[in-house]
Design a protein around this nucleic acid. Structure first.
Lengths: 156, 156
DNA sequence: TTAAATAGAACTATATTGGTCCTATTTGAA
DNA sequence: TTCAAATAGGACCAATATAGTTCTATTTAA
């Protein structure tokens, strides 16, 4: 469907809120009230984010979660990696080798991989800090500058 | 899952093959033999592509399909639009308004939309002709040049 | 010792997708 | 005129993926 899963969407929402209060330890209960999401859902998301070291957790009474590092150092791509089950790639065969019978003489797989690289780079270049505030019409984006020329399109 | 559907994948494969023979009218049976996909699947894909005017069809005996326009004028984004059920967008709320309770005070929706715009532009800038041959390490990509600065990432 | 918290894993229900099949329509050719 | 070869459209079922919930274990402050 070319959509990120809802868990990933929730994850960006949760992390974006947490980014506004870097020193605060958030419990699931607290985030539930603020974000109007169900507690089990928030809990599930934070557990996965913890496993991927995007948040750090403190267990026990008075425990909770906080960002594991500054919001400028957490990218949307990293959130996707943590919350999506499959490895990154717009098609199955371009993400994982050996999933398709005709892989041997497939002519488009390599090109899908190039597309993946460029899309990935876009997502690498958006960080949590960018998601916190409604962005003004931005100046030259690092994202765009950074995108290397991976694909040539025949001029039309 | 941040994946294009299999139908979309099949669609690019079929169209890429057809792009190599612009004047030939392909029947489903013919494509079946060449591409090693099942006939009903190829048929389904081509019908959808026809509805979106990416291929033109000739009905009746000796009928078949051909690209509706030159391969330089069919983009991967258009193929996705034709074969995916949902409108383009990495999250549901950023693709379709009114799908989320908390849309009113959601802080990240607008930023997802900016991300959508940039990703979309990447896909707009890859055309079928680009998928036909294994691309050499390409020179400056129109795709990249074209991507406008929609998102600012705080320098790290 | 207890209550408040996270950790992990399993489970169920729903939604989406993939794939197939059926019927209608069109059209070239015998 | 009839038949066979083709596409058009839609409905359907099976498989997969996702969402959401629940249960048990563990940790730790008070």
């Amino acid at each position: 469907m070319l959509r990120v899963s809802k868990l990933t969407d929730y994850g960006t929402l949760v992390l974006t809120h947490m980014a506004g209060f870097p020193d605060h330890l958030f419990s699931v209960a607290e985030l539930t009230q603020i974000l109007h999401l169900n507690a089990p859902t928030i809990s599930k998301v934070l557990k996965a984010l913890g496993r991927h070291e995007l948040v750090s957790s403190v267990r026990g009474a008075r425990g909770g979660y906080a960002l594991a590092r500054p919001a400028t150092q957490i990218s949307v791509a990293q959130i996707i990696d943590a919350l999506e089950d499959q490895p990154f790639g717009l098609t199955e065969c371009s993400a994982t080798a050996g999933t398709c019978d005709i892989e041997g003489d497939c002519r488009i797989r390599a090109n899908w991989q190039r597309i993946n690289t460029v899309v990935r780079r876009v997502l690498d270049d958006v960080c949590l800090a960018d998601m916190v505030e409604p962005l003004p019409l931005a100046t030259e984006a690092r994202m765009v500058r950074h995108a290397t020329p991976a694909i040539k399109c025949t001029p039309q």
